[in-house]
Write a protein that binds this DNA or RNA. Structure first.
Length: 268
DNA sequence: ACACTAACCTGCAAGC
DNA sequence: TGCTTGCAGGTTAGTG
C-alpha cells in the first residue's frame, strides 16, 4: 500500500489530531510486527504529550517530550483517526487514545510494518539517502553513485541508500515518463538522462501527493478517504495493455522479485 | 563493495 | 464449489 505519497498523505491526515495532544492510553493487541513492539511501551508513553509528527522516508516519527515512536506501514499498513466508538476491525493491532478523545488506529494485515520506541536515534533512520523532493536529491547524485554499477536502474532508484521513498509504483511510472527501460544497467545511463529521470521522480511523487496517493486495494488516508492517483498510472499494473503514448502492448519483467511493467517502444 | 535471493505474513484472484 | 498456486505497496538478513 504505502509509498512515500501515501505515507505523506497519512501524515497530513493524522497530524492535526495528534500534535500538542496528550496520550491517554496506548493499547497493543498484536505485538508481533516486523520487530516486536517495544515491551512496556504503554507505560513509557501514556501521559506524555506529542510535540510533533513528521515523516522521514516512509517512516512516521511521533515525537514525544521524552523519546519518540517510529512507525512504518510495511506493505499493507494504514493509520486512521477514528471516533472512539468505531468498531474494531480484524488486524487493528495498536490503538492510541488521546485525552481530547481522538483515537489513532494502526491496521496492518501482513504485519510487515513496525511500531518502535527509542529515547534517542532510531537505527532504522541511519544510512538513509536523501528525500526525493529535497535539493539533496539530484541527477549528479544518481550519476555518481551509479558509475560502474551493473544493477538495473529500477532497483537502483528503489534502493533507500540511493534515494528514499521511491517504491515499485512510482519507480515504474517515473521510468516510463523518462523513456528509460527498467532493466537497463544503472551504470549505463548518461548524466543527461539522469537529469530527466530525477525531474520525473520528483514530479510524479509530487503529483501523487496532491491527489492523495494511490489507492490500489484499501489505502485510505488518515481520515479514511481514498487516493486518486491510480487513475494516472500509465504502466504499473497494466501489463499486456496498450501503452498510453504509442499503443504498443506493455511488457512485464521481474527485477529483484518486483514486477516491472514498461513500454518496449517508448522505453530504451 | 556488490549482486542476488529468501524471508517475514495475510488476503485475494486466477486456474484447475 | 473447493482446493492450490502465485502475487501484492517494503525492508532486512544472508549467500556467494
Amino acid at each position: 500500500m504505502p509509498e512515500l505519497p501515501e505515507v505523506e498523505t497519512t501524515l497530513r491526515g493524522i497530524e492535526p489530531w495528534l500534535t500538542q495532544q496528550t496520550i491517554d492510553k496506548l493499547t497493543i493487541r498484536q505485538a508481533s510486527l516486523r520487530w516486536p513492539v517495544t515491551s512496556g511501551l504503554s507505560n513509557l508513553v501514556e501521559g506524555q504529550t506529542i510535540l510533533a509528527v513528521r515523516r522521514r522516508a516512509k517512516y512516521l516519527i511521533i515525537q514525544l517530550e521524552h523519546g519518540s515512536m517510529l512507525v512504518h506501514l510495511g506493505m499493507s499498513g494504514s493509520l486512521r483517526v477514528v471516533e472512539p466508538e468505531t468498531e474494531l476491525r480484524k488486524h487493528d493491532h495498536i490503538e492510541m487514545r488521546m485525552r481530547n478523545g481522538a483515537v489513532l488506529r494502526y491496521h496492518d494485515p501482513r504485519r510487515f510494518g513496525c511500531w518502535l520506541w527509542s529515547e534517542g536515534e532510531h537505527r532504522q533512520l541511519s544510512g538513509l539517502g536523501p528525500e526525493p523532493l529535497s535539493t539533496g536529491f539530484d541527477a549528479e547524485r544518481l550519476y555518481q553513485l551509479s558509475r560502474k554499477r551493473k544493477v538495473a536502474v529500477k532497483p537502483f532508484i528503489m534502493d533507500n541508500n540511493t534515494v528514499v521513498g521511491v517504491g515499485n509504483i512510482y519507480a515504474s511510472e517515473a521510468l516510463f515518463r523518462s523513456g528509460i527501460r527498467p532493466g537497463r544497467s544503472a551504470g549505463n545511463i548518461s548524466l543527461k538522462r539522469y537529469q530527466v529521470l530525477t525531474d520525473h521522480i520528483k514530479t510524479v511523487l509530487q503529483a501523487a501527493i496532491v491527489q492523495g496517493g494511490t489507492t490500489l486495494r484499501d489505502f485510505v488516508n488518515g481520515n479514511g478517504e481514498p487516493g486518486y492517483f491510480q487513475q494516472t498510472l500509465a504502466v504499473y499494473g497494466r501489463a499486456d495493455q496498450p501503452c498510453v503514448s504509442c499503443g504498443t502492448l506493455l511488457k512485464e519483467l521481474r527485477l529483484g522479485q518486483r514486477s516491472s511493467v514498461f513500454c518496449p517502444r517508448c522505453q530504451r
